[in-house]
Design a protein around this nucleic acid. Sequence first.
DNA 1: TTGGATAGTCCGATTACTTCA
DNA 2: GGTGAAGTAATCGGACTATCC
Length: 294
Amino acid sequence: MGDKNDGLGLSLSLGYATQRNHHQQPSLKLNLMPLASQNKHKKPSWTDLFQSPDRTCDTRLFQRGLDMNRVPAAVADYDDETGVSSPNSTLSSFSGKRSERKQIGEETEAERASCSRGSDDEDGGDASRKKLRLSKEQSSVLEENFKEHNTLNPKEKLALAKQLNLRPRQVEVWFQNRRARTKLKQTEVDCEYLKRFCENLTEENRRLLKEVQELRALKLSPQLYMHMNPPTTLTMCPSCKRVVSSASSSSAAVVSSALAPIASNPQPQRPVPINPWAATPIHHRTFDAPASSS
DNA sequence: TTGGATAGTCCGATTACTTCA
DNA sequence: GGTGAAGTAATCGGACTATCC
């Protein structure tokens, strides 16, 4: 039914490892797996592009991983603790059979019938879409719960609704909208990050091209080489693993050895490419959840 | 065991309302 | 007081899973 995306997808995964594996190394992966195999239940979206091929790190976990809302570790284990296994449905996997669930459904209807919104009034019967502003307390309680886990199981939903004197549906909608806002902000953060990352790469590329040109020029006119300052080059010594800048006084030898024909040296001291990613520090950015107005 | 029906949730997009400058 | 922008509660439709029969 849902597999409409069998083509080769190209996803750029940008994120931190999940809390399940405790590596906090930032990673940027280019993934050429078919999108359908990565997530067969969703149409590809912008966030899918950020999705790790690792199934333990689906979009939500990714959001949590980089997340500005700093979901505590409990979230990662939440599924296990509550028996909620499906990423899609909290109720579907809510333990208990349908007949048992029906009671909850009835409760829900009862709640719907009995609960009005927080304060006054004329909620009942009015078919027109009235927009209800949640009170500050309601918003903050919801926010607290969202920080603990960004999805609700039916029990929690009912309890929250009862506590806040809202309809369960309102609680559910609030969580959905809150997730959407979180995701939107996360996307903005990711875009900004990628933009800067791209700028860094462009700059690095420009620098390297320039360096290549200079090296070629040197090779063509070795007599000039003696009178020129060597270009700035970072070279790593394979044996001692030390990075040597060719701009330093002793660097000419490194440069010349790098330029020397390999045939003349049975154990060529070839420069080891420096990882360009290392030049762009990745900071785990966090920011506060938007204050819900009331 | 298989498959259709049903119920529930999720998400993305959108609408409609509220608040504020 | 009118207005536009921003924020957000609510709705819609499609996709998906779990369960029942």
